[in-house]
Structures are given as C-alpha cells and as structure tokens.
C-alpha cells in the first residue's frame, strides 16, 4: 500500500478582511519523507499557507490534508501529526525551556514522565540543556529559535514545518540546525522549510516550490530547477596581474580589477573549455567561485526581480 502524501493542498485560498488576496487557488503535494523548500519573496503568501496548515489562519477556500487527513474535517487528528516552528518568536518569556517543552507535550496529551524524557533529549540535541532552567527571556535570539525547534519536536511530528528557522542566526548555529533537520528527516520526518537563505534551501532540500503573489509559480525537484539555469557567472582570482583577457565565442569575460575577472558561461558548456582558453592566454587561476548562488539567480528570474539579478 502506498503511503499518503505528507501534505496535499487543494485550491487553497485566503482573502484577508482588507481585501488582500494572500493565496489564490494554491494546490500542492508534498511526498512523505521529503525535505521540501517553500520559497517566495516577502509577502508572497508563504506564512499564510503555513498558517492555514497549522490552523493559525482561517482559510477562505479549499482544503488541506496531512497524511490523508483533512485539517477541516478531522482537525485534531491532523494537528497531532504536525510540528510547527513559526517565523516570529512566540515563547512565554517568563517560562523556562524545560517547562515550555514539557507543557507543549502536555497540550498533545503526552504524559509528564514521557514529556520530561523527550524534553531533555531534544534540549540536549539542540545544545540547550544547560539553559533548561533559565527564563526564556534570558536566551539569545539563536537559542530561542532552537528552543522553538525543540518545542515543535515534543509530539514527535510526522510533518515538521519550519518557517524561516535560521533567520538572524549565526552561521555556526545555522549549520548545527541544518544537521539536526537532516537527522530528523533521515529518521522519517517530512520537513517543509521556508527560508530567505537560498543556499540553505539548495543544500538541504530535494524538492522545491516557489510562491509569488499568492500563486505557486514553480514546483519541481531541485536538480530540475537548477538545470533551468542557462548561464552561470564565475569570479576568477588570478596568480599574477592580468594583461589581456582571452576572446572565446561562447564565453564573455569582464575585468573586475588587475587580478580578477568574471566569466559568463552557458551551462551547456563544460568548464574545460573555459580553462583551456585561460591556459592558452597564459592566465593562471588561483581560485574561482559562483558570482551568486545558482538558486538565487533562478529565484530572481522566476519572481521577476531582474534588477537584482543584473
């Protein structure tokens, strides 16, 4: 028997009382076990979509199913399978992390003894155990975000929704959070991630949907999406001062300063061709990198932000 998809959205709509149409007939399916990125510019409808699934926002049309269970017809059963880390900090600042986690488990009907054991496990995994007895208000921004992740794991959800979990978090903590997310995904939890760090989505996620102006404008796997990119720009740093840049039909070179330049290269062209032309011109490349993240380039193109791309 095939497993039901982790999340199915059918013609989801949301019009706010002020007339703003946040979601326009959104349909989407996310497979069980996936690590799925939901991207979109600010105000595109990501948080509204997540809000409807987690029952924090009342939709104005359509339905959503979590592992085959409708959130409208069987709300309680559907919610029992979801964990949510919202974008904004929503902790009781006067409570201690351990109490916050144990209480969250209680709201799901989990007995205190089980909740205590789980709280300790997740607080340890997220490196918060030494802060377990301090009021939440004394924690740093990164710690509060990790605490919200620990809290969302208390019901051991089958579907975990992370709404910009790494916003404003330093790279070290961000990487430890990625490690945690990968581990729980490997253990079988389906993860939906929204993020503004496109590098994060590219590194972590297998499938992706892009939402813009309340509509899904792209829904595919990461590899297929990145293959849509027809041109990549590399930045090269040279060993010695540049005299002249080579002239190659399909590659465009631009000098940045006396020891570095950019090369626009069609994705269909292999890099050997680029290096052969550089070797022939007597240029020794010390290092190279993508000018922008590949997903970022595609994102800008799909959401129509060509100005930022240029």
């Amino acid at each position: 028997m095939t497993q039901a998809p982790a999340l199915v959205l059918r013609n989801l709509c949301k019009t706010y009382p002020n007339g703003v149409e946040a979601l326009k007939d959104v349909s989407l399916e996310i497979s069980a076990g996936d690590l799925f990125a939901l991207l979109g510019p600010n105000g595109a409808g990501k948080s509204t979509l997540i809000g409807i699934v987690s029952s924090l926002v009342n939709g104005t049309g359509g339905d959503a199913e979590v592992f085959g269970i409708s959130i409208h017809k069987h709300r309680s059963a559907a919610m029992a399978m979801i964990g949510i880390v919202p974008q904004e900090i929503n902790l009781n600042q006067f409570e201690k992390p351990l109490d916050i986690c144990v209480q969250q488990a209680g709201f799901y009907g989990i007995r205190r003894s089980v909740a205590q054991e789980r709280a300790e496990r997740y607080l340890r995994e997220l490196k918060l155990w030494d802060k377990a007895e301090l009021p939440a208000r004394t924690l740093s921004g990164g710690m509060k975000r990790r605490l919200m992740i620990a809290r969302s794991m208390m019901n051991e959800p089958r579907l975990l929704i992370l709404d910009e979990p790494t916003a404003g978090v330093d790279i070290e903590i961000r990487r430890s959070m990625w490690k945690f997310v990968r581990a729980i995904n490997r253990a079988g939890t389906t993860v939906i991630l929204t993020t503004h760090y496109l590098e994060e989505a590219e590194n972590l996620c297998r499938n992706i949907a892009i939402i813009d102006h309340g509509r899904i404008i792209e829904n595919t796997d990461m590899r297929s999406l990145l293959m849509q990119l027809d041109m990549e720009t590399f930045v090269m740093d040279c060993q010695a001062d540049l005299e002249a840049l080579p002239e190659v039909d399909e590659i465009q070179f631009r000098r940045i300063d006396k020891r570095s330049f950019e090369a626009d290269l069609p994705c269909s062209l292999d890099l050997n061709r680029l290096f052969a032309s550089l070797t022939a011109a007597g240029i020794t490349v010390k290092s190279m990198r993508n000018k922008t993240n590949r997903l970022e380039e595609l994102f800008m193109r799909l959401t129509g932000d060509t100005e930022t791309m240029a």
Binding site: L56, S76, I82, I84, F107, G109, R151
Partner: peptide, 17 residues
C-alpha cells in the same frame, strides 16, 4: 497575556479541542 505574547499559538496548533 498569552495572546499578546503570541504563546497562545502553542495551544492553537495542538490537537486540543
């Protein structure tokens, strides 16, 4: 207070009736 601090959401996302 729970509404203002938004931690009411802890309960709203749970399966509690």
């Amino acid at each position: 207070g729970a509404k203002f601090g938004r931690y009411i959401e802890e309960m709203l996302v749970s399966p509690m009736p």
